[in-house]
Design a protein around this nucleic acid. Structure first.
Lengths: 213, 213
DNA sequence: TAGATTGTTAATCGATTAACAATC
DNA sequence: TAGATTGTTAATCGATTAACAATC
């Protein structure tokens, strides 16, 4: 079921933070496995890979795992990210509370629309002309693109030029990873297409099976 | 390399549309494999699964493949979907124009907040009490959850009870697929964490290696 | 016919899980 | 001690590829 090992690390992180806040100090691989829906073997294997050791019968020390995960996920650095495109989706992201919980901070938004530009709000919105300079001066590594698709490719090039290392793209274009920059495309239309496919693939399978008989 | 079979289908679709526009009528599994970067066996296996047959030595008829792919990827999509949770993200989704381009239509929103409920707008927003009835009456198959995480699990159960077959979940909880329902989790925090990890993973590998030595 | 390509079975690969000895 | 949990090896599973007989 789970395909991406990195996503699993984030899930461990999230779960263990919750457990810590509930007062737990130790955890068994079995507990984690249950909560995340994988096998305990995999949890132990992941921890072994990260050079985290537990105590037989005593489990793993939550604090130790969290500090390892944090150093890996670079949360301790608490780096800022920027948002390009402050339309409906961009606005929703600016106000997305869960980011704070995760220690993620959008430090500035950028847009071409003068009506949206406003440097005097908690998360300032600047003209897109200032994007490259801002990224360089603040050594931003990660950016979110929430522009229309027509603008996305140009923006991506600007971001890469400015030194951005990772992009989360909501524009409905498949931006392609270059060696210099990781790009994660979140294409809502395709996600829903996928669901329709999944939902209807059962019928297809049944069809095929009935034909085979 | 390629993990998602559905994604492969849309790649076939894209490639073959281009070939068709260039005047081609037939294509070999080997050509497609080359262009997409997979093995010809996999192409043939995919086509076999879709009950598309070719001609030994003559290849596959592009038109036949395209019409099959279109029926799989597009036709089912003219169904309506519903949205639960009309906060910032929900609102952004309601107004997301790209959905229309893809033939996806949100027919109603649902919320607990009486201030948001309004049946007299283009996409009506109803009280969440009416959710199950609406789904059953309109035979809705797909739903989007954009509620806070605290509500998401309960909503999921209601949706499954009402007969929903696929859920796109934006709440920052990992909802788990049951046999009856496909769930696709879009967790923005985790996506960004993932990027930080990718950006920094080179250093980590080096770290681990240096420790091992 | 000789050559090329499909359709399908067997082999491979990587990721996950099961199993269990070590040991707290 | 008896019981429980880790750490690790072997088994399994699913997805992809290689190989090749069938056949156009």
């Amino acid at each position: 079921m789970e395909k991406d090992p990195v996503l699993r690390l984030s899930r461990y992180n999230r779960l263990l933070k919750k457990m810590k806040s509930l007062g737990f100090h130790h955890v068994f691989s079995d507990n984690i496995a249950d909560a995340i829906g994988i096998s305990s073997s995999l949890v132990r294997k992941d921890f072994a890979y990260l050079q985290l050791s537990g105590i037989k019968r005593g489990g793993y020390e939550i604090e130790k795992i969290l500090s390892k995960l944090n150093s890996i996920l670079k949360k301790d650095i608490n780096q800022n990210i920027v948002l390009i495109g402050c339309g409906k989706i961009g606005q929703a992201l600016l106000e997305y509370k869960e980011f704070k919980t995760d220690g993620i901070q959008i430090s500035a938004g950028f847009d071409t629309d003068v009506n949206k530009i406003n440097p005097n709000i908690p998360i300032p919105i600047y003209s897109i002309d200032k994007l490259e300079k801002y990224i360089k001066e603040n050594k931003i590594q990660i950016a979110i693109i929430a522009t229309p698709d027509s603008a996305a490719t140009q923006i991506m090039n600007n971001l890469i030029n400015a030194g951005i290392k990772g992009i989360l793209n909501f524009a409905p274009v498949d931006l392609k990873t270059t060696g210099k920059c990781h790009i994660s495309n979140v294409n809502l239309g395709i996600e829903i297409e996928n669901l329709f496919y999944m939902v209807n693939s059962k019928h297809i399978t049944e069809e095929i099976n009935s034909i085979k008989k």
